[in-house]
Nucleic acid binder design. Structure first.
Length: 275
DNA sequence: AAATGATCCTGAGAGC
DNA sequence: TGCTCTCAGGATCATT
């Protein structure tokens, strides 16, 4: 499941291959993703030079003169760099061809998306899918104050607030459990109930957790491939609580609990993580 | 307004 | 072995 570190790893993998190069062909094999891939995109992109390859939250933003391709990997999406003549695989839905380079979008569960944002419709930051996102966790904008202000008066469970991406982006289901464990905070605690001290710990835990995953090359559960088609490092092997129901807490040895919050599995230690 | 629930989809794993 | 069933998960949209 691509979370922010996986998306960033993908971005770093493909950016050097595509920036400054013209799109010779953009081919849609199967437009049925979360939203249908716009059928006029191949024509629109042909001979357009890739100006940039950025990321906002979990969206990859491939910049052109006239707009951006917005790519989301959903739950099971990946981009891989394939060589000429290499056959397609199951669930390959689209392909970019640049001089000497083929990038293929694969997504078994098709929760991902490939969209077009035209510059004529305004700055990319104001796109409806991006405009309400929280701050980037690796930017200077993300401080303890971000959490203090963002969580204020929220009665929602802190795990759900983190997952919403409205305060800080990039904390998906796996890393939410991990960061809260690291910070010693019960995932069910109302976001607005946490002291400044505890939010200081949470801020540090989020940065540390995402940074560690990024350095590991992006975590994965089972079906993530990085930009070169290599399997990512298996971060969950290093997970302290995620997917470890019943196993001993690394800190106190009591069994880790699994609960469901907003229809998502949460793993935590009820002894080490307090309200 | 804020919070929760349904929903898209496929593959893996469990259970029979 | 093979069938059926459940579950996982990001993020939007609908509903309470």
């Amino acid at each position: 499941m691509p979370e922010l570190p996986e998306v960033e790893t993908t971005r770093r993998g493909i950016a050097p291959l595509i920036v400054g190069q013209p799109i010779e062909d953009f081919i849609i094999y199967h437009p049925q993703l979360r939203w249908p891939v716009c059928q006029s995109l191949p024509t629109r992109l042909q001979n357009q030079t890739v100006q940039s390859c950025k990321r906002r939250g979990k969206y990859l933003l491939v910049g052109f003169d006239k707009g951006y391709q917005m790519i989301h990997l959903g739950m099971s999406g990946s981009l891989r760099h394939v060589s000429a003549g290499q056959p397609l695989e199951k669930h390959d839905h689209a392909e970019w061809r640049l001089p000497g380079v083929r990038i293929v979008y694969n997504d078994p569960r098709r929760f991902g998306a490939i969209l077009w944002h035209d510059k004529a419709d305004g700055p990319i930051e104001q796109h409806p899918l991006l405009s309400r996102l929280g701050v980037e966790p690796f930017s200077d904008e993300f401080t303890v104050q971000t959490l203090i202000k963002g969580f204020k008066n929220r009665r929602q469970a802190v795990k759900n607030t983190l997952l919403s991406g409205q305060i800080v982006v990039g904390v998906g289901n796996i890393y939410a459990s991990e960061a809260l464990f690291k910070a010693g905070i019960n995932p069910q605690a109302p976001a607005g109930s946490l002291s400044a001290y505890r939010l200081t710990r949470l801020h540090q835990a989020i940065v540390d957790t995402l940074q560690a995953a990024l350095e590991a090359g992006g975590s994965t559960i089972r079906d993530y491939l990085n930009a070169t088609g290599e399997a990512g490092a298996y971060f969950e092997l290093h997970a302290q609580v995620y997917d470890r129901e019943g196993q001993p807490c690394p800190r106190c040895q009591r069994p880790i609990k699994r609960i469901v919050q907003a229809q998502r599995a949460t793993y935590f230690c009820s002894h080490c993580q307090r309200h």
